[in-house]
Design a protein around this nucleic acid. Structure first.
Length: 425
RNA sequence: GGAGAGGUGGCAGAGUGGUCGAAUGCGCCGGUUUGCUAAACCGGUGAGGGGUGAUAAGCUCCUCCACGGGUUCGAAUCCCGUCCUCUCCGCCA
């Protein structure tokens, strides 16, 4: 959510931004409603002022008659005030309904375009794409041969989109978690294992829609809880409603959680194997920063993602996401897309976003500077460290050998305890 | 799950119907005193939204004592619901 006052004072800027983002919003109506809001607010204030005055005078009334007259007057004023308040609440509700459609502003360097085809490739990682002198398998075939992924078992238990990781895949998952954690802790991130559920109001504050036809979220019946789609939700929610001291910032946390996604409407494309699944584990970076720190923090987070995947020896490219593909909260977003030989194309493997104060405003996360009056909303950023399922795809497919075995990336060997996964006999 | 207790400003902690946005202490900021530091003393010190003003300072109004409702001319104070915390019991990895 953007600041109401900002929107009013920068209508044209906001209008242009909505257009770049491919979002249709009735800004004229928003402006009209905001003017109406101010008018009603002033009216409500005035009625309250009078009513308060009357109430105070009753306490000091000298006889019963005067008291009764005051009560009558007070009742009348409070009634009027309540009517104005109801109207005011209605207007605020409409303002918020429109306001939540308005996306965040966009970084001036973000490529302008309607969708992912306008994304700008910035550079590629240190690892070249592998050259195979044999027909490479995809991760489903490899997972089958190596006893790593049981899709049939997952389907039997929970349906399509679920799976068992078995055997060395379990060690790989844990190794990837440890690998990411070691690197991030050295960079000042506090590790956390977060709840896998969160209140709907938190989901909403981060920018997810917990219910409704287009939701990507599983909700828990008869509660206001949902399964989280990413630890971004819980990590951002961690400080909801808090006011921090400026010198506490930046705060960097990396959280491990399971991620649950309904993937409604995503059937048909790339549904094979682990690429698009209903549950996976992820290590997520999250940062709370001062406004002037967030641009640099986004670069830092992206660099860490590059370090992680250069370290794993996985070929990837980095993409600057086009305005039309940013979603609501992001001001700028970088994706890492890993080379996936089984698909013969790049597939999104991490994503780093600077959400500026968009989420913080909805979640009520503020900071205070010493010696300055008032508080401001801080900035939030998030980035994937490792999304296990897709990273497994990239490892299996890029590290496969002619004999059907898969080499373990050297950085994972301390935790996997071997340097190669051999086919079952 | 059952039974109690409680949620007040950065913190601690008063306040049980009428200038209460809220005593007091601590902390913090400014000042006085002081070889230096500390102590002592004096003053200041919540947030949000309006009005006025220069998108300043200042002045002023409204709202906020977990959240949402209700009673009342008037609620931090009374009533109901929700959330959360603590204690005890039960259950359990």
């Amino acid at each position: 959510m953007l600041d109401r006052k900002f929107i009013i004072e920068n209508v044209d800027l906001v209008r242009r931004n909505c257009k770049n983002r491919g979002v249709e919003v009735d800004l004229d109506r928003f402006v009209a409603l905001e003017n109406e809001r101010k008018r009603l607010q002033a009216q409500w204030d005035e009625l309250n002022r009078k009513a308060n005055q009357v109430s105070r005078s009753i306490g000091k009334a000298k006889d019963a008659a005067e008291r009764e007259a005051g009560k009558e007057e007070g009742r009348r004023l409070r009634e009027q005030a309540a009517a104005v308040k109801a109207e005011l609440d209605g207007v605020i509700q409409q303002l918020e309904a429109i306001g939540r459609l308005i996306p965040n502003l966009s970084h001036p360097d973000a490529p302008v375009g309607a969708d992912a085809t306008a994304n700008r490739e910035l550079f590629v990682g240190k690892t070249p794409k592998p050259q195979f002198d044999f027909p490479p398998l995809d991760h489903v075939q490899l997972g089958e041969k190596l006893g790593l992924i049981d899709l049939d078992g997952g389907a039997r238990v929970a349906g399509h989109g679920f799976y068992f990781l078995t055997g060395d895949a379990v060690l790989l998952e844990l190794a990837l978690q440890r690998y990411a954690l070691e690197l991030l802790m050295a960079e000042g991130f506090t590790p956390a294992i977060t709840p896998d559920l969160a209140r709907n109001e938190i989901l909403d504050g981060i920018g997810f829609i917990p219910r409704g036809p287009e939701t990507q979220i599983y909700s828990i019946e008869n509660t206001d809880l949902s399964l989280i789609a990413t630890a971004e939700i819980t990590l951002g929610g961690l400080l909801a409603g808090q006011t921090l001291e400026a010198e506490q910032l930046p705060i960097k946390i990396c959280g491990i959680s399971h991620c649950f996604r309904t993937e409604a409407g995503a059937h048909g494309r790339a549904t094979r194997g682990l690429y698009r699944v209903h549950q996976f584990t992820k290590v997520e970076m999250f940062a709370f920063t001062l406004p002037e720190q967030s641009d640099q923090m986004l670069e830092d987070i992206r660099d860490l993602e590059c370090q992680l995947f250069d370290g794993l020896g996985i070929p990837y490219r980095v993409v600057d996401t086009a305005t039309g593909d940013l979603g609501g909260p992001a001001y700028r977003k970088y994706d890492l897309e890993a080379w996936m030989p089984g698909r013969g194309e790049y597939g999104e493997i991490t994503s780093a976003s600077n959400c500026t104060d968009y989420q913080a405003r909805r979640l009520g996360i503020r900071f205070r500077r010493k010696g300055e009056k008032g508080t401001c909303f801080l900035h939030t950023l998030n980035g994937t460290a490792v999304a296990i399922s897709r990273t497994l795809i990239a490892i299996l497919e890029n590290y496969q050998q002619p004999d059907g075995s898969v080499i373990i990336p050297s950085v994972l060997r301390p935790w996997v305890g071997k340097d190669r996964i051999a086919p079952r006999r």
